[in-house]
Amino acid sequence: MTEISVRVLDEEHWSDYKDVRLRALTESPEAFVASVEEEKEYPESRWRDRMNRSRRLLAERDGAVVGVASIGQERYVEEGVAELFGLWVAPEQRGAGVARRLMEAAAQQARKDEMKHIVYWVGTDNGRAVAFASSFGFRPTDSRRPMRIRGVDTDEDAEETAMVLPLGSSGGTPTNL
């Protein structure tokens, strides 16, 4: 297999992000808060605004988009905490290292942006995602929140847990999770 490359998109690449985001929402609606029906109606200005709020990472292999993730400042926690969200890998690429490359690129970008921690919210019943995040160095916390997924019937008791990756020598866990 060829190498996986990851690039950080800028505002001018909003349509690349839109394409993969709508693909992800269509293929894995249960994994996202938003719905494809809602987001496909967004105007260009909203997509451009999203590009400026968070870093959008695009994974490619052989010129084809195979995954996406976003990393941005966690606004509910103390300064210096980034949140990883919107991670998606094309089904035919799962288990082939795409998610790991996206995580590596996200951690590298967070360090570059002088973040001290990355928070990644994972469904408590998603053992595969918890194991993957743990293998990368994320550690579970006691922080939980209800799962919020629009347009998909879910268990009303479904919840997510915050997993934290300390960057550099910061150690510890953010205090306001």
Rank of each mutant, 00 (worst) to 15 (best):
A131F: 07
S135H: 12
P146I: 08
R48H: 03
V122N: 04
Y120K: 00
R75Y: 10
W14S: 06
T175E: 12
I4N: 04
R61K: 12
S5F: 06
G97R: 08
T173E: 14
G171P: 05
N126E: 13
D49T: 10
G168H: 01
V130Y: 01
P146Q: 13
K116I: 00
R148S: 09
M163T: 13
S35D: 03
P43R: 14
A105R: 15
D142Q: 11
G127C: 00
Q73D: 12
W88Y: 15
D19W: 02
S135W: 00
E92H: 15
R61I: 00
M115P: 02
E160G: 02
G123L: 10
L22R: 09
V152T: 03
P146F: 05
K112R: 11
D113H: 11
A158F: 05
V68T: 14
A158C: 04
K116Y: 03
D155R: 12
P146H: 08
T26L: 04
V6M: 08
A82D: 05
S170P: 00
Y42H: 07
W14Q: 11
R48A: 06
T154I: 13
K112L: 05
N52R: 15
T124Y: 00
R48V: 10
F136G: 00
F85S: 14
A34I: 01
P146V: 07
K112F: 06
A90C: 07
P166C: 04
E41S: 07
L177T: 10
S28G: 05
Q93S: 14
P140M: 02
P140N: 03
F136N: 01
P29D: 02
E38T: 08
L25G: 04
D10T: 15
W14K: 11
P43D: 06
L165T: 09
A162L: 12
N126T: 05
D125Q: 13
H117T: 09
